[in-house]
Amino acid sequence: MTSLSDSRLTHTWADLRRAGRAGLVPYLTAGFPTIADSRDALRVAASHADVLEVGVPFSDPLADGPTIQASTFKALENGMTLPGTLELIADAAVDTPVVLFSYLNPVMQYGVERLMRDAAELGIAGILLTDLPAGADQTIEEPIQSSSLDLIRLLAPTSDSERIARTVAGAQGFLYLVARLGVTGASAELATGLADQIASVRAATELPLAVGFGISTPEQVRAVAALADGVVVGSALVDVLGRDGVAAADAFLRGLRDALEPVA
């Protein structure tokens, strides 16, 4: 298992802590809206991001809301695959640490150990598997945990103290806190109870906490940044990218990133 001190993500979070601000963690679906624009969008996003999540498209995205579902189906139409996602990441050649965000089946079919080797060669920092909760399958979790990639874990509002303890035990890099019940997607208001949820996770681990699901505006980013170490923005970004293109995504992310500057 990767120790806390030597992973690439650990250094990123330590740097952020020293800088006194929360990290921006944008999510993009690989291969959306086109393969070329997707590569450009990754570069633009990396210029604002502290950690970059790259989604591997899957035919049955059951944890995702309409925006990311639609981006996924478009990416699949464009011929995007898991090997294609790796190529895209290699092609984009960004310096920001990249976390692969995937459903389990494409990873299983590629081969977990093979993916760990290939992703490590590309310098990919971590992997998050939406449908692999802690303890679900040791034969998959163990090879990831013992690889150079961090195994990023999700925690939900329904995770009780027992689940939190079990999840943080094998978690690496940072924890992704799902801020509300439901699927991914922008929402007008932040979930109530987020502060309590964060407090109960903090009591169980020293790992940095990134919060996602439903965050779409600079105001929401600022509010979450006051509580968490990182702020994930997915659907809202994918929406802007799909509707208005790469330049608009650039401007959108700049606005979010500005919201994270420490108040002088």
């Binding site: 802690a134 874990r153 689940r163």
Partner: peptide
């Protein structure tokens, strides 16, 4: 078999 689901459903 097994239980390959989002974390949100594990408690249920």
């Amino acid at each position: 078999g097994g239980r390959y689901v989002p974390e949100t459903l594990v408690a249920a």
